[in-house]
């Protein structure tokens, strides 16, 4: 499976944030999306998630046989940096609701407690209202929903930035274990995290996406190359 973006552009009044983006993401990889503040990473995610209308271009999924189809809501999972969960439900109720309405599409469903165990959410927290969950636990719930939904494309907008080291490490492991059957696009400002977790580094520069080739560079040289590429924009 491939996720293909063609001629995607988006402007806000006169400012063109995304300029004719052409890019192909491949299944089984985690892409680290890097860019300066205001480069348009969140705009790109919002366009892909159809929260924002694009000015031009389209994006679609191409299967192994090269057959293209439109991206539907179910294809995309979007995890925000600030986890959002319905505060008036308990963790268990949220999962039950989600599994109820998606019972036809969830592959190999497990019991609710099995899912909680999988995410290391303690039994005493499972029946608490989500408004009383900590930031890390809310993040886990948000991830859990996206894991159960198994979207073809998982968009992660700086999801590990404000997590404690233990939860962040758990999340990294989880993302690695899940990457096989989906395309993961991971936006972050933390270079080391991107290098550690991601298979490809993609820069959003001048409103365009470009891969930074690692070839035979060591980690430090690769970092320098990324920084240099990001600085280019400033020098122009």
């Amino acid at each position: 499976m491939k996720f293909v973006i063609e001629h995607l552009s988006k402007s806000f009044e006169k400012k063109q944030v995304l300029k004719d983006i052409n890019f192909t993401f491949e299944e089984g990889k985690i892409y680290g999306l890097l860019g300066r503040n205001g480069a348009g990473k969140t705009t790109l995610f919002n366009c892909l998630n159809r929260d924002l209308k694009v000015d031009n271009g389209n994006f679609y999924i191409e299967d192994e046989n090269g057959v293209r189809r439109e991206v539907v809501a179910d294809d995309i999972g979007y995890v925000l940096s600030t986890p959002t969960v319905p505060e008036f439900l308990t963790g268990r109720e949220f999962l039950k609701f989600f599994m109820d309405i998606n019972e036809k599409s969830i592959k190999n469903p497990k019991s609710i407690d099995e899912y909680f165990d999988y995410m290391s959410i303690e039994p005493e927290d499972r029946d608490k209202l989500l408004k009383d969950y900590s930031h890390g636990m809310k993040n886990k719930m948000q991830m859990l929903i996206n894991i159960i939904a198994q979207p073809n494309i998982l968009l992660l907008d700086e999801p590990l930035t404000s997590l404690d080291v233990v939860v962040a490490e758990e999340m990294k492991q989880l993302l690695r274990s899940l990457k096989q059957n989906q395309i993961t696009i991971f936006s972050t400002h933390i270079m080391d995290l991107a290098l550690d977790l991601c298979d490809e580094i993609v820069l959003l520069n001048h409103g365009e996406l470009e891969v930074v080739e690692k070839t035979d560079l060591d980690s430090s040289e690769f970092k320098d190359k990324i920084i240099a590429a990001l600085r280019e924009e400033e020098n122009e």
Binding site: N102, A149, P151
Partner: peptide, 18 residues
Amino acid sequence: MNCDHSLLTYSFYKQPNF
């Protein structure tokens, strides 16, 4: 504030029939 703000970030919630 207490429901759609969070659930609208999930794709499943935005399906037209839902």
